[in-house]
Write a protein that binds this DNA or RNA. Structure first.
Lengths: 220, 220
DNA sequence: CGCAATATTGAAATAAGTCAAACCGTGTGG
DNA sequence: CCACACGGTTTGACTTATTTCAATATTGCG
């Protein structure tokens, strides 16, 4: 590493490293582990509005704004913090960076819109199945999924918070998926046993993930 | 208007002016009317993932990407199209533009995250009430709401598509709100009769809208 | 005027929620 | 090495918000 471009932080499992209500600036990139974007209502209801995996930008570069969500780690994680200045220099030195960031932004918001569709239109089975498919493709893109199998550190409680369901109902739905031979999930290891059938059942269409060069989209 | 910075288009009521699956580039700003971001599943289920009012950017500037949603007008509308080049020139000529766009982006995505919370955690009453509050503040900001009253061109069917509910249930929930003296809605005219109580009932916290200068947030 | 799109109503069905208890693995401390 | 506490998972019985279906008003518009 040459010049100092920012700081690298490590966070323990289950820790908020950016907090709802705080003001932040700069750009933060998750470099290791899983995290999630968490929104908490005054009465304690919790909603996860996205999972982050290595390479994901925690928040778009914005000049000092109030945060409407927390970033909470789901495993031991690390992230890189760039100041706005650093980012500016980076952008002028390497113009393609701008385009890259804009594209990443667009994909992130497309994923978020899909989350809205998930919650608004799909039933429990579809919601969970869809999430499993999405994470498979995203993890495959960064070399963290082999053979339709990946490390899935999300507890059923968190899965419930992400899908707007009850932990109890998540549990029953998972059992249904297992019984149908679609997935196996044990010891935080998720194996999608029949991706084609699952994707079909939940009408998963990967278009919104913008398969770059379609290098990560292959299923063979 | 001096030099040509882009084109101005007019669209009729209930028309898609950007379509899911198409490739777009440039930046589009709604200048008149209401529109919505609409996602349609292969089997026809429809989810509205956001309402747009004058001044809203239909899509962040992105270089030629696939669209995961349609932009559909809810009234006769107009929008302004800027090419990426124009935008670049604008940005270099008026540096604050960059910051302004970044901020707008951030608010848009905060609204979207709130939409996720709405669908995931809130019941029918809260979902609809929350939407009413949000639109009041946003419209007030652009001078399109007076006395907690505004033009609301959204049909109950569309309201159902936005809240992930059934038109039937939306109807019953609206009646409940009317019966409680919270709102009146007739002839596309929405009047919030008791904003304080409604906001309280649905736990509306305007923070995520980033009240600039808090000029639009006053309730008196 | 008359059609088509909305809005409203009622009754019955169901997906998901609630409550509460039991179970299981695992790490810790006596 | 056992006990036991802790976080997570699983199970059962019951309740409820919301959906579904289907019919009837109502409104706006060409």
């Amino acid at each position: 590493m040459g010049a100092c471009v920012g700081s690298h932080y490590h966070v323990r499992n289950k820790a908020d490293f950016l907090r709802q209500g705080e003001r932040v600036s700069g750009l933060h990139i998750l470099t290791k582990g899983w995290a999630c974007r968490l929104l908490i209502l005054p009465d304690g209801r919790r909603q996860i509005a996205g999972f982050l995996i290595p390479g994901d930008i925690c928040m778009t570069e914005v000049p000092d704004v109030y945060l409407d969500f927390s970033l909470s780690s789901l495993t031991d994680s690390s992230y890189l913090s760039l100041t706005n200045d650093t980012l500016d220099r980076l952008r002028t030195a390497y113009p393609p960076v701008r385009k890259g960031l804009a594209l990443h932004d667009h994909v992130i918001s497309a994923i978020l819109r899909n989350w809205v569709v998930n919650l608004g239109q799909r039933n429990a089975f579809e919601r969970i199945g869809h999430l499993f498919c999405e994470m498979l493709l995203r993890l495959r893109c960064i070399g963290m999924a082999e053979n339709d199998t990946y490390h899935f550190p999300v507890t059923q409680i968190e899965l419930a918070e992400a899908t707007g369901l009850t932990p109890v109902h998540v549990n029953r739905t998972l059992q249904d998926m297992r019984a149908r031979g679609l997935v196996s999930l044990q010891n935080r290891e998720l194996k999608i046993l029949d991706f084609a059938r699952l994707a079909n059942l939940v009408m998963f269409d990967p278009g919104y993930l913008h398969p770059v060069e379609d290098g990560c989209m292959r299923n063979d």
